[in-house]
Nucleic acid binder design. Structure first.
Lengths: 365, 365
DNA sequence: AACAGATTTTGAAGCGCTTCATCTGGATCA
DNA sequence: TGATCCAGATGAAGCGCTTCAAAATCTGTT
């Protein structure tokens, strides 16, 4: 356990290392950062001194001198939604490959926090920022970019093209979900939940609508909700469960797994069979969907891939001088489980086959 | 949208602001940090200049000059376990109250990452670190403390007393869970899952054992598992489900909600009734437990409170020169739901009443 | 009008590191 | 042998900010 031989109370600095190693300050810096530029002899002396002093580089000083730091920041919307956890992991895995550390900030669906964390990363002069913005508010993006900060948007981009982004085709996801239900023979659909102001939700609804229109003899009702939590799903299910047989929806699609879980719960509590009476499909492929009342069909956006791609793009923007902005839109995939297929994974109609399905249990629990 | 009037490509510095405002560098600094020390006139001039330049302070330079930064780091074990999400939120709420920002790092149950994030926060000279260590490895703690970094351990402390910590009484949690099952009349318990090397799990098992011993006519079998995921629960349930009636456990307690969910799933798939045939209780009160196959009884550690208390202690350590190290151990609470009480929240035996129960749905989903 | 005391402002000295122009000491070659 | 190179090492100039002693300005008194 190497002793801390620095004088005074302060942590040992490179100057201390230099003194102890009997070389100049610059040599220590080189030894630490570009060892190939330094003779084996000096390298050894420096290493020994570092060890002996328990020297830890001061990253504030390094960032200041170098002009920018090497860590990357990720501002997350909601750490409690496993999609974002997946994004964080994807980003981290990719960052790690090239020696960058990833620091997270959770805005918890709060616009103020979101902006303030953006500023914190900006003030820290991070190498780059990954940002999953909430609806509205992209002003922070412009602000930090004006300071030269590189930023890649993930999951939402408010339609801007002047900035790198990795998105999910929300409209297509809604389309897939509705087509799946229709393919199962469902004709009275319900689009359950979601504040319609959210871009993603509007898109998913539009996609569902497109499938309905294509099918012809299908109707789709829409009951929005203020939030995306499961109790809202319960309320919605309660509101339709009492209807006479011919009026009940026979297929429910929800823009969030949580709402779908609430719907399923409430339906089952009222004695209805899922999926026999009503098939239900969620959205996001949250980790808990395998544990839900009955395992839940859902639309999966590959969060890990989104995070990894976004980080790759960001790193390119950082390192490649002739980087060009690009927007990558990933296609979501159906993940079919009991809430639409039933306990035996009943053979499903032809139509679904073509709709691009992912294996049923992609996310290891 | 204020134009960036700085010369060259670089971001405007305080020097630029000073020049534009027609005051000295020091005055700008004061205006920004202790406005009460500066005349109204200068304050206005500085503010205008800041606005006009779109000036953003460089936190690297600030940390360097001031000797330490104002942000606090939290190294999390597993961002995918909602207990840690709760801890992060509690910590963040508390930090925010006193103007500190919280940056997260997710070690993803990887010792190497854990250490490396500790170092990153150390190198960044953060004001303090909150750390939820995995089993073993506390060497990082000593390392960063040697550099003067303040650190508070959360959820696990490896028995050290020389360092602030906020813990949960794991033994008592196990005791509560087992006592609850015993109180329901269960006599053949099964402690299902968990690598026994984990301190928390060993403790919970010990607590359960204590309840069993106290009760007298109760047995408890232990089947460990390598990980804490739901498929391990499935395996364990499968392994006992085929036993003849008298040999089947009638109460299963698991050291993780995930395993418990797997257990419940598998039991139900094999036609067994939960809780009638087997009552099941988990641990952690993860957010998904309300959505599980049947809503799950569990032992709740109040993550939000743990995070908030830990942050409060850390802030005291940062600000209060005669801070004394303290270890705070919180008592976990029972959260009783269907997986032990049945669908109607069947009246429960007297014994549980005294055992300190939390309201049934404390965590809003 | 002159002065002590309080209030503001100033300027300079770092904080610990990177970087770059310079300098050194061999090795290489004619 | 002396001129030429070149890998390595050096030292100093910042990076943008905080802080503090010293200077300047403003109060209220006498």
């Amino acid at each position: 356990m190497t002793a801390n031989t620095a004088h005074g109370g302060r942590a040992p600095s490179m100057q201390d290392v230099a003194r102890l190693a009997g070389v100049s300050l610059g040599t220590v810096s080189h030894a630490l950062n570009k060892p190939e530029k330094v003779s084996e002899r000096s390298l050894q002396k420096v290493r020994t001194a570092v060890e002996q002093l328990g020297f830890v580089p001061n990253s504030a000083a390094r960032s200041l001198a170098a002009g920018s730091s090497t860590t990357v920041g990720l501002v997350l919307t909601d750490i409690d939604n496993s999609l974002f956890v997946d994004i964080a992991r994807g980003a981290e895995d990719e960052a790690r490959k090239s020696g960058h550390a990833l620091l997270l900030a959770n805005s918890d669906i709060d616009l103020g926090r979101q902006e303030s964390y953006l500023d914190i990363f900006d003030e820290a002069r991070v190498a780059g920022i990954l940002f999953t913005p909430m609806n509205a508010s992209l002003e922070g993006v412009d602000r930090v970019r004006r300071h030269g900060r590189r930023i890649v948007l993930v999951n939402y981009a408010g339609g801007r093209q002047d900035c790198c982004a990795v998105l999910s085709d929300e409209e297509y996801g809604g389309y897939l979900a509705a087509r799946h239900l229709i393919g199962l023979g469902r004709r009275r659909l319900l689009f359950a939940g979601g504040p319609e102001e959210f871009y993603a939700i509007k898109e998913r609804r539009n996609g569902a609508l497109r499938a309905v229109t294509e099918a012809g003899n299908v109707t789709m009702e829409v009951i929005p909700s203020r939030r995306l939590k499961s109790d809202e799903g319960r309320k919605i299910a309660a509101a339709v469960a009492d209807r006479p047989a011919g009026q009940m929806p026979d297929g429910i699609l929800s823009p969030s797994d949580r709402i779908a879980a609430g719907v399923i719960h409430e339906l089952m509590a009222r004695g209805l069979q899922v999926p026999d009476d009503v098939a239900v499909i969620g959205y996001d492929n949250n980790h808990f969907t395998t544990e839900a009342a009955i395992s839940m069909s859902t639309v999966s956006q590959d969060g890990h891939l989104m995070g990894a791609e976004a980080m790759a793009i960001l790193l390119d923007e950082i390192r490649n001088p002739d980087h060009e902005h690009r927007v990558l839109t990933l296609k979501p995939q159906l993940v079919l489980r009991e809430s639409t297929l039933g306990p035996n994974g009943r053979p499903r109609p032809e139509e679904d086959r073509r709709a691009g399905m992912a294996p049923a249990n992609p996310a290891p629990l």
